[in-house]
Amino acid sequence: MSEPQGRGFWRSEAATGLYLISPTALFAILLLAAPLATTLLYSVFTDGYLEIIPRFQLCNYIGECASLKLDAATGEYVQDQTYLGAWSDPVVMTLMWRSLYVSIFVTAATVIFAYPVAYFVSFNVEPSKKSLWLFLITIPFWTSYVIRVFMWNVMISRTGVINSTLMSLGIIDEPLRMAFTIQAMVVTLAHAYAPFAILPIYVALEKIDRSLLEAGQDLGETRFTTFLRVTLPLSMSGVIAAVLIVFIPTIGDYITPNLIGGGKIPMIANMIEVQMLQADNRALGSAVAVSAMLVVGAVSLLFLFLNRRYLKGNK
């Protein structure tokens, strides 16, 4: 490699690289880093009436906090209501746990359902028809998520498709209670995220050299044990990607609890919404948001750590 002539850095390869990524980098800084930094700052500032006061405090996270209010007479801030910090508030903790286990259920359901589909498309569909299948799998994305959630409501409500069918067939006398349950939320979310899980698993399966499967059988394993010893470990990178892609957004999902849960089983995102907008406590809302982020981060890292041996690059 010959050194480019003169003018050091601005002509170097590194600089070219920076020019090339600059539009994306700007975009990322403006739209991702800036809001994140703001949220972080808000979470350690003090709540005022319709404003946020840049006074550092940690009680939004733990302990008891007080909102401030401007006293018109003195021009000083005086204490208003008090509230509990995110980790000290049992309500926040309940919602955090609920979000966590709902999303773990959703992730498990989605991946367990997605794997056979991806496997089928990768191994059993003729090569010329694979893109058609992938295309069909993405069709649910053509309608808005809100509409798809409503569709589920139509299916499972008291007077919905499933209940009325079962009742008219005489299989049940009373309508089943499906709407407004956690199970209904899990099903809805699992359905919504299925393509996100199918695609990375499919990609991982496609990368597997088919002669490895023959080698497995040649060395005495049945098709099933070959799957366990060869196919599954080699597709784990896709499974891990699928898990993260489904888990991370579902823990912060906000529409499904509102529409399917009917607002009766709120999750952590609903709590954030209430604090930010209805209760006008952006400091606490931000602290809850940051806490949720930490939980997602911690669970994801733990998951990656447990599966670290599958992530070593294999050619």
Partner: peptide, 15 residues
């Protein structure tokens, strides 16, 4: 079936 035969194979791509 392949896994019950008294043969073993060295694959072209080595597998």
């Amino acid at each position: 079936p392949a896994n019950k035969r008294p043969t073993n194979m060295v694959f072209q791509s080595y597998a």
